[in-house]
């Protein structure tokens, strides 16, 4: 039975700098594996749509414009994404990765919450509905 068992901690803190981090004024470097926003590599994608099927949050839509020409587009909704990295694991071609640099994704309007990957004309075509999205998960 003692009194004031935390005296050591308290007294040593008296002259010590607080450990609280003053985010957003001070940012520490994120770990390399930090799971931030998704990035897509159009070169390797084969349009299998597995990423969209396995996404638990329906955050991905894969559009196949022309399988032979390898013309695909991908829509990504960071506001729905839970950053679980299942899509990264599901993709057998290594086309998806998560950035450890872009992770402050809060925004005041919704425009930044839909990210289209792919060739610009392809994206426009895909959005115009000229092609069927093969991702079952994209039905809302």
């Amino acid at each position: 039975m003692k009194l004031g068992t935390m005296f050591q901690d308290v007294s040593s803190s008296f002259l010590r700098k607080p450990v609280t981090e003053k985010y957003p004024f001070e940012r520490r470097t994120p770990p390399t594996r930090l799971r931030g926003t998704l990035v897509w590599d159009a070169e390797t994608c084969v349009g299998c749509g597995l990423c969209a099927t396995d996404c638990p949050a329906n955050a991905l839509e894969v559009f196949v414009l022309d399988r032979k020409e390898k013309r695909f587009a991908l829509s990504y909704h960071p506001d729905r994404c839970t950053f679980c990295a299942q899509c990264v694991s599901s993709c057998r071609h290594g086309s998806l990765a998560m950035s450890n640099e872009v992770w402050e994704l809060a925004a005041l309007d919704r425009t930044s919450f839909t990210i289209h990957f792919g060739d610009e004309t392809d994206v426009e075509l895909a959005l115009a509905g000229k092609t069927a999205s093969n991702a079952e998960a994209s039905s809302e």
């Binding site: 099927t53 396995d54 996404c55 638990p56 949050a57 839970t82 679980c84 299942q86 599901s90």
Partner: peptide
């Protein structure tokens, strides 16, 4: 109503 993989996360 979700597939086996999606269920891990829910």
């Amino acid at each position: 109503s979700r597939n086996w993989v999606q269920n891990i996360y829910i």
